[in-house]
């Protein structure tokens, strides 16, 4: 039913979280391939290399060594060729100040890493829906955090 295999890129330094994300993505009703990097620097190196196939969406953990997710977000939104890629911010914490900041930087959504695997699946599914439907440009702020109320 899906026309296209989604190419998703995850940047997270936590191995368990990468595994959980990958597991959950398998349960999501979208065909998707997951590329993984373990820090911000690696992410930006990947994105800025020549001939790189541009992913359909990025999932960035905030708290990463070397370059954190917010810095990456800012750089991506500053780059003409990368600017249009939907970016989802992923984090354990939910600090309203941070949420507001990344919303203003132009992220598509905020995923709070949930305590339940089911929720994780649902949230990733929701994010994929947004990507596929192309509803990633400036979502209403109330709907910005995908799996919780802000």
């Amino acid at each position: 039913m899906n026309e296209k295999v989604l190419q998703l890129l995850l940047a997270d330094d936590d191995e368990t979280d990468r595994e959980l994300f990958e597991e959950a993505l398998k349960a999501v009703p979208h065909d998707a391939i997951l590329y993984k990097t373990t820090n911000g620097e690696q992410l930006m190196d990947y994105l800025l290399q020549d001939g790189m196939s541009i992913p359909d969406a990025l999932f960035l953990d905030i708290n990463m060594p070397r370059k954190n997710g917010i810095e990456c977000l800012a750089e991506i939104k500053d780059d003409a060729t990368l600017r249009h890629i939907p970016v989802f911010i992923v984090s354990t914490s939910l600090d309203p100040d941070v949420v507001k900041r990344v919303y203003e930087y132009g992220a598509c959504g905020y995923v709070r890493k949930p305590g339940s695997f089911k929720t994780l699946i649902a949230t990733i599914g929701h994010a994929c829906d947004l990507v596929v439907s192309g509803a990633c440009d400036k979502p209403p702020f109330e709907q910005f955090v995908l799996n919780e109320k802000i």
């Binding site: 936590d14 368990t16 959980l20 708290n63 984090s91 354990t92 914490s93 600090d95 890493k113 949930p114 305590g115 339940s116 695997f117 089911k118 994780l120």
Partner: peptide
Amino acid sequence: SSHDLQEPLRKIEIFTNLIAE
């Protein structure tokens, strides 16, 4: 406390949930 403490806790939660399910 917000991040590093929650991180392992969340994992405990997610895996206990998985086991429970």
